[in-house]
Design a protein around this nucleic acid. Structure first.
Length: 188
DNA sequence: TATGAGATCAACT
DNA sequence: GTTGATCTCATAC
């Protein structure tokens, strides 16, 4: 499997996001196939970077190919991959994985849980992989991260993003059509 | 199955 | 002081 390098992310978020579907994300050797992501561009009112740089979102304004991790609703962590070029402040939110590696470890971290729900949602997947704010700003092409390009063709579905209140209608959610591991199914 | 509250924190107003 | 790029559990149909 071919490793994904940093320059993979130096493109439009709307090109990178669908390209990540079917790729494999490992964190300390634990993880699986990416089945769901969302694109956030800094011109998008729903993006954290929309109002300009702050301490929290500083990584989004840096170079592409790095992880942006933030606290959501006070309890969950969410991971984003920074895209485009330095200062463009665009990122892809990783929303769901199909578990393939270290399933026992993920199950232990998440408590007794259905395999289908181990990584089906941004908060769930960070808990399963053990990603926290401590991993903010880490490069995506070096340990503990390991990304593999997808092999073969995939059927990609798009739809409106989830859990936001602004720019609700933009179809910037991308997923593996008909995967059992999505946080929510795509409307056909 | 579907809806609703609670958890809990940092950025932002 | 308010508000989320969420999840889980409880209660109601």
């Amino acid at each position: 499997m071919a490793l994904i390098r940093r320059d993979f992310f130096a493109r439009s978020v709307h090109a990178v996001a669908p390209d990540l579907i079917g790729s494999t994300l490992l964190f300390n050797g634990v993880g699986g196939r990416i089945v769901e992501v969302e694109a956030y561009h800094h011109t998008d009112p729903a993006a954290h970077s929309f109002r300009g740089p702050t301490e929290r979102n500083a990584v989004m304004f840096g170079p592409p190919g790095f992880a942006y991790v933030y606290r959501s609703y006070g309890i969950h962590w969410c991971v984003n991959f920074v895209c485009e070029r330095e200062g463009s402040a665009s990122a892809v939110l990783i929303r769901a994985l199909e578990p393939t590696q270290g399933i026992a470890k993920m199950r232990r971290r998440r408590g007794l849980s259905d395999e289908r729900l181990l990584c089906a949602g941004p908060g769930r997947l960070t808990e399963a992989l053990g990603i926290t704010r401590a991993h903010n700003a880490l490069p995506l092409d070096a340990p503990p991260f390991e990304l593999h390009r997808r092999t073969g063709r995939v059927q990609i579905a798009t739809g409106p993003r989830i859990g936001i209140t602004k720019a609700v209608d933009h179809p910037w959610r991308y997923g593996l059509a008909a995967s059992r591991f999505l946080s929510k199914p795509f409307r056909v």
